[in-house]
């Protein structure tokens, strides 16, 4: 299971998660969602430390965060 579950339909490419991520592992994809936004994708699964800063900054609740148990 992945550390981040990003709901591409809800993402509006506002970039606040990318700014907030301490590990700089998020970026906007070149693909677009149904509304035409380049939604966010977790580039480097290893780099993610599941700190949830991205989710806390997301105005659209598009990110769920998980950690190895």
């Amino acid at each position: 299971m992945r550390k981040l579950k990003i709901d591409s339909v809800h993402c509006k490419a506002c970039g606040l998660c990318i700014r907030a991520c301490p590990k700089k592992v998020l970026r906007l994809r070149d693909k677009i969602n149904p509304a035409g936004y380049n939604y966010v994708v977790l580039e480097d699964e290893e780099g993610c430390i599941s700190c949830a800063c991205c989710a806390l900054n997301c105005p659209d609740m598009a990110i769920s965060v998980y950690k190895e148990a």
Binding site: M1, A55, Y66, K67, E68
Partner: peptide
């Protein structure tokens, strides 16, 4: 995997 953060039920 353990959930660290998930969407609120308010939405």
């Amino acid at each position: 995997m353990k959930a660290v953060y998930e969407k609120t039920t308010a939405f």
